[in-house]
Amino acid sequence: MSESPKSNEVGVGGMAFERPIEEIEAKISELESLSQSTKLDISSEIDALNKRLREQIEATYARLGAWDRVNVARNSKRPVASEYIATILDDFFELHGDRAFGDDRAIVTGLATVEGRRFMLVAHRKGRTTKERLDCNFGCAHPEGYRKALRKMRLAEKMGLPIVSFVNTPGAYPGIGAEERGQAMAIAENILAMFALRVPILVIVIGEGGSGGALGIGVGDRVLMMEYAYYSVISPEGCAAILWKDGERSPDAAEALKLTANDLLRLGVVDGIIPEPLGGAHRAPDDAMRQVKAAILSALDELALVPPDELVAARYRKYRTMAAIDGRFPAPPSAGRADDR
């Protein structure tokens, strides 16, 4: 609980549904320090509590609602781009700037290697410490961020490198400078350009998939989502404010928007879900990042076999027919000619 001296190290993030878990965690750490200071053997009590903890986490996470998941996706201990870079990449050489306006730190781009596979990494950057968060504007990119991403993606195409994109943003930044410099135009250009890139694009939503700001680096041959990530056209808060003029109803909005990984898989918007450790990525970041790494390796290996023409044609078909799942729409007349592009 919040009074517990350990509360900063466990649970976290003000997620009400985690309170029972945090209570047990606090008790365990209390007992552990007790056993250390008194040299009493209370390991059986601790084991029993650990078992209870596991059951509590299982029970809690088995019935997470959409809004809970949004909070897990935003959890301050959830791994962010810089940690993925430090943990799962064997090499990373950052490439800064859009060569036009500036270097938007809300998106990091660079040459990356994982177990011999080379690729261009494009990732929303949220930061861990308060200073880092401010520095990268909490993952809310400006147009120069999207233009930087586009420049590096085009470079990847020239170099024959696949692109791996990590999506984790509350949304593109809504500000005066962002509008002046063409936020909408930058995102639109990226989406259009990503359809023409002749190298594989793997997109992984690692946390928040915030609307157009996510899609601006989110068009891919494979789009994967972590188990507790969310992806939505609008934030639940925004939706609740518009529909009910009441931010308190964000949980209702989160349910209505169908923004969880399972929803998106069912709707055919994402191709797969990357499982997270029990109790979410924030509870075992290294395990979570290992899962992502494994997903990157298998997706890159699979996409590497596809010839560029086929890749581009399949990407077009994927998005052209994405929502027409019940065949209600007339078949796109040009779909059959996708290969002769």
């Binding site: 157009g212 068009v219 056209v233 918007v269």
Partner: peptide, 16 residues
Amino acid sequence: MHEGVISLMQMAKTCA
């Protein structure tokens, strides 16, 4: 908004 992420994907479809 009422079509959620499907609406969002129309941005990609139109550009495709």
